[in-house]
Design a protein around this nucleic acid. Structure first.
Length: 307
DNA sequence: CGGGCCCTGGAT
DNA sequence: ATCCAGGGCCCG
């Protein structure tokens, strides 16, 4: 399921073939993928056709293109995409493979290539969003030329690959909450880009149990956990992300290879790669958590929690 | 802050 | 036929 590494792989695949190109047509095969578009298909078409893409940026799991008029002036809007859990953005070149299954929206570019939005489960979408300045006025995201970002992504915190992220501050935020640490890692308003897979992997790497209250973490452990999350996502990025099946592929239609390196996610009943104990699975907040019952421990409760 | 919902298709 | 997967958002 596309989390930060997978979305970044897609961004890197799309950027060189889309930035600098002009959109010549919009084809909508399933309007449900435009659910979040004000004014629907007609308005999106009016905003896109004849505009060029000037940058491909990403914050957390949100990906967007900056748009400019024919004369090069910025339009003040971005084309925003979220892959949900089964979305793909695929580059289709004339004569190349042409995926039809679950194709929902296509953009045609002035070199004849197409960008297809494919989405089996329809949790993702494509829509336009006005640009606003990031609250901290720093570079908005990876791939962004300035501090502007789509208003519909402005509530999303910076992610662990963002040079402007203040790691110590995020660690302090985790420690200021009493919710389970996994729920905090998944909260895109605290730190973005982490989903169920990389949350379980980061917790395993840092030896922290999913249900440890944030307030029970030391600053040192909270920092170690965030660094573990960053490290596992960087390793996944290096091998093209995590693919379990055909649901996640890059812009060229190729899978990633990180599934074979997972230590916790999806490994219920298999031996822990550190200590050999069987990985267990627990349901919490409607999601499964995979963890090693021996080497992932609750760091215990703080005095405050014991009261 | 937890739970339901949006969706489809593959597994049971 | 029913269950389950899950990101984000909305509801209470």
């Amino acid at each position: 399921m596309p989390e930060l590494p997978e979305v970044e792989v897609v961004r890197r695949g799309l950027a060189p073939r889309t930035v600098g190109r002009t959109i010549t047509a919009l084809e909508v095969l399933d309007a449900r993928s435009l659910r979040r578009q004000d004014g629907g298909e007609d308005r999106l078409r009016a905003l896109l056709v004849g505009r060029s893409m000037t940058a491909a940026a990403r914050r957390g799991k949100f990906l967007w293109w900056r748009l400019a008029e024919a004369d090069g002036a910025e339009s003040g809007e971005a084309l925003l995409a979220h892959l949900g859990m089964s979305g793909q953005l695929r580059l289709v070149t004339p004569g190349g493979p042409d995926p039809q299954r679950h194709r929902r929206v296509s953009l045609t570019l002035d070199d004849g290539a197409r960008v297809d939005f494919i989405d089996q489960r329809l949790f993702g979408g494509l829509w336009s969003s006005d640009l606003v300045e990031a609250a901290d006025r720093r570079l908005a995201a990876l791939g962004s030329p300035d501090a502007l970002l789509p208003v519909d992504a402005a509530h999303i915190a910076r992610d662990l690959l963002d040079p402007a992220l203040d790691l110590a501050e995020v660690a302090r935020t985790l420690r200021g909450r009493r919710r389970a640490v996994k729920s905090l890692l998944l909260d895109q308003g605290i730190v973005s880009g982490i989903g169920n897979i990389y949350a379980d992997e980061a917790l395993w790497a840092a030896r922290v149990r999913y249900d440890t209250p944030g307030s029970a973490l030391s600053q040192r452990t909270a920092l170690a956990l965030l660094r573990a999350a960053r490290a596992v996502m960087e390793r996944a990025l290096d091998v093209g992300g995590t693919s379990f099946d055909a649901l996640y592929v890059n812009a060229q239609g190729e899978p990633g290879y990180f599934a074979r390196s997972l230590a916790a996610y999806g490994r219920e009943g298999e031996p822990c790669r550190r200590c050999g104990r069987f990985i267990e699975r627990a349901i919490s907040q409607g999601r499964s958590s995979h963890y090693c019952p021996r080497c992932q421990r609750s760091t215990g409760v703080t005095r405050k929690d014991a009261e």
